[in-house]
Design a protein around this nucleic acid. Structure first.
Lengths: 186, 186
DNA sequence: GGAGTCATTCAACGACCGTAGAACGAAATT
DNA sequence: AATTTCGTTCTACGGTCGTTGAATGACTCC
């Protein structure tokens, strides 16, 4: 039986799968979907490429698993409240964006699945703006905000724009305060 | 001799090279560096893959030629003047970003050369912000502005975020006015 | 302890890629 | 008209990739 007695096989299997997922996330985030090969993931996880296929079925499915992130919707409220939530999420993203999110961001321009995930749920650190922004052109302003936040996280963690990559997160958030607030207001 | 008498061979050669470059730009912009194959470019230009190699030497060099853009520095001035220039460039980029720029943007996350071009000359439609922004944290604010503009152009032309892709450029520029102006001011 | 499950490896296939070099044929030069 | 140039194609090599299916051997269960 299972679910009661955990066999050593169960443990090993889960450990191996998570080791593969960790290395896959890292490589997807570092080099994107296309340049990350199943062979490289397997090597990094000290495992045979066939095992990766056995557990995850295909490269696409491996990416889907590696790119899973928790979606944390922005709660509705006044323009100021929404702005403060977004800036706090941005602050977290600047300090340490989850590797899974970076994998999606790195791949979004060349892998349709990654683009879909961004499009369907434009987010930074799983921040689903959704319908938290109301007023005139609410949907457009929401998209613009998503684009801005994506740009900043991209510039810092992936493009590594010289001064943006090194700057104090609080300083960046402070600079972006007026910009974000001006866009949450209808 | 040459440079005086233009032979039909000269004409044909230039025509073919430009046809190849046009198709290369289009494909690089649509699918990025890695997914664009020399074979596909050759087929689109109705030419043999070997001819592409013969004219451009390698895939990297083909990309370099296809991705060439004119750099148009932002001229220094008051914070308001710089902001107005940036917003005007953004407006142009929203209406019709050059294919060569889109090729660089599409490839910047997976092709090191494209990333270098963005980093060394963070631009949208060749807008080199350079040292046009002064004051406290001038360099950081310049990088943040680059990141914002990249995000918006990316969201509209490449990610095609639903409402951002369809919106009136003037409306978007209007929405971003306060954000851009708040960042040009020291 | 013997049968069976399953985590893991191994070897290989077929497809596609960038690239190189020989070959051909039409235009240019003399 | 003969010869050279060169735009263009053809064929092929070596490499890498995703994926498969059989083989192996350790663990599990009755």
């Amino acid at each position: 039986m299972n679910s009661v007695n955990e066999t050593t096989r169960d443990r090993r299997r889960v450990e191996t799968q998570e080791r593969i997922l960790t290395e896959a996330r890292r490589l997807f985030a570092e080099t994107g979907y296309d340049r990350t090969t199943i062979r490289a993931v397997a090597a990094a996880a000290q495992v045979d490429p066939g095992l990766v296929m056995h557990y995850f079925g295909s490269k696409q499915q491996l990416f889907a698993r590696a790119a899973e992130t928790e979606s944390r919707p922005i709660v509705e409220g006044t323009a100021e409240e929404v702005a403060e939530q977004l800036l706090e999420r941005l602050r977290e993203s600047l300090i340490d964006e989850p590797v899974a999110s970076l994998a999606v961001l790195r791949s979004m321009l060349t892998h349709p699945d990654a683009a879909d995930e961004i499009r369907g749920n434009a987010h930074v650190r799983g921040s689903n703006i959704g319908k938290a922004i109301h007023g005139v052109d609410g949907e457009l302003r929401s998209d613009v905000l998503s684009a801005l936040l994506i740009g900043v996280v991209l510039g810092r963690h992936l493009l590594k724009l010289d001064h943006l990559a090194d700057a104090d997160p609080d300083k960046i958030v402070e600079l972006l305060g007026p910009a974000v607030r001006s866009l949450t207001k209808g």
